[in-house]
Simulated scan of single mutants.
Amino acid sequence: MLGLNASIESSRAGEFGKGFSVVASEMRKLAKLTGGSSERVSKTLMVMNDSVENIRKITEQLYSISQEQLAETEEITAVLEKITSDSGKLLDLSKIV
């Protein structure tokens, strides 16, 4: 918008507005560059957002797996405690006999 305004003012000023014309041209270049940069930043943010979402999903999967492993470890511990207890009882019975 500033580039367009500078072009209009440059035309209106005639010979005295040639310097303004250079400014208008540079403003248009800057606007194009800024637009391109904005698009690249937007695309990069979208890629980052997708990556974060993938990380979140993987983290949820890891949490689920670790919960399953915890449950299985607790089950194994309970079985080992039962075996230890039964072994103690068998040892006591073998002393009686």
Rank of each mutant, 00 (worst) to 15 (best):
M1Q: 13
G3N: 03
L4H: 13
L4R: 11
L4G: 07
A6T: 00
E9H: 02
E9F: 00
S10C: 03
R12P: 07
A13K: 07
A13L: 11
G14I: 06
G14L: 10
E15N: 04
E15Q: 02
G17W: 01
K18P: 02
G19A: 07
F20E: 09
F20M: 06
S21T: 05
S25N: 02
S25Q: 07
S25G: 06
E26D: 07
E26P: 06
M27W: 03
M27L: 14
M27E: 05
R28C: 01
R28M: 04
K29D: 06
K29V: 04
L30R: 06
K32R: 14
K32L: 08
L33M: 10
G36F: 01
G36P: 01
S37Q: 13
S38R: 12
S38Q: 13
R40S: 12
V41A: 15
S42R: 15
S42N: 15
M46W: 03
M48Q: 14
N49E: 12
V52M: 05
E53A: 15
N54M: 10
N54T: 14
R56P: 06
R56M: 08
K57T: 13
K57Y: 04
E60N: 11
L62Q: 09
L62H: 08
Y63H: 11
I65N: 01
S66I: 11
Q67R: 05
E68T: 09
E68P: 05
L70G: 04
L70N: 01
A71Q: 09
A71F: 09
A71T: 10
E72G: 02
E72H: 11
E72S: 09
E72C: 02
E75P: 06
E75D: 04
I76L: 02
T77A: 07
T77S: 09
T77Q: 12
A78M: 03
V79M: 07
V79R: 12
V79F: 10
E81Y: 05
I83V: 12
I83N: 04
T84Q: 13
D86Q: 13
D86S: 10
D86F: 07
D86A: 03
S87F: 03
G88M: 05
K89Y: 05
L93Q: 12
L93K: 09
S94T: 03
K95E: 10
K95L: 12
K95T: 12
I96N: 01
I96Q: 09
I96G: 08
I96A: 13
